[in-house]
Amino acid sequence: MIDDGVPTVRDLALAVFETNGRLVDAGNELVRAAGLTTAWWQVLGALGYSSQPLPVSHIARNMGLTRQAVQRVVDLLVGHGLVTMEANPHHQRAKLIVLTLAGREALTGAEQAVVPLDAAILDRVGSDRLAVAIAVLREMNGAMTDYFASRSAATTPIQPEDFA
């Protein structure tokens, strides 16, 4: 917070970083009994809440992760029988990631494990403030997306003739 007591975007960013760390730790603790980690749960959740199977790149984009990080998790999930990789009719090399029955059961177990924490947070924060927080975070994501899209559109690639 700056000296005049007015919160800044940086204050919010730092609070999000802190909360993210606590979410990861809490997730690991709560889903351990289901045989998962927060990262595994995150990918299973992305698939479980999607109306269709997704390629790794879409999971990564939807979750704000790198494709490489998601691919590592997917490889582990395949090895544990929680997801399979199937042919993608829209792209020969980008396989679709599909939850198996075991993957759906693991996701259900994880979701049930966090119900008490969800209730405690909702009780403290309230549904109206939770809705506002969600809206603010989505607006921040949109602003960042627009900012970087406009920067990349304004930046012209360096051409060989620029060095002549």
Rank of each mutant, 00 (worst) to 15 (best):
D25I: 08
I2C: 05
T19G: 08
G27R: 10
D123T: 00
R32M: 00
H90G: 10
E161P: 01
V98G: 04
P55K: 03
D118Y: 13
N62G: 00
V70T: 10
A13Q: 01
V115Q: 07
A39F: 11
D25K: 10
Q52I: 11
L12W: 09
L47S: 06
Q112A: 11
V136C: 13
D75A: 15
N62Q: 08
R10S: 10
F163Y: 12
I134G: 06
M144E: 10
E18C: 09
D146Y: 10
R104M: 06
L30E: 14
R151P: 01
A133G: 15
A39L: 09
G64P: 01
F148S: 09
I97P: 00
H80I: 02
A110I: 03
G27L: 13
S50C: 14
L117R: 02
P157V: 02
S57M: 07
S127I: 11
H91Q: 02
L117A: 13
A149Q: 08
F148Q: 09
V74T: 03
T66A: 04
E105L: 15
Q68S: 12
V9Q: 00
T38L: 12
T8Q: 00
P160M: 08
M85P: 05
R22A: 15
G21N: 07
V83A: 07
F163L: 14
I59C: 03
H80E: 02
I97F: 02
R124M: 02
H91E: 01
L82Y: 11
L101R: 15
A34S: 12
T8C: 00
I2F: 06
V43R: 05
V56R: 07
L65D: 12
V9F: 02
N62H: 04
M85C: 13
Y147F: 14
I97C: 02
D3V: 04
Y49C: 01
H80Q: 07
D128A: 11
N141G: 13
V74G: 00
R138D: 10
D3E: 07
F163S: 03
T37N: 07
L36R: 04
R32L: 12
R138T: 12
L130P: 07
Q92H: 12
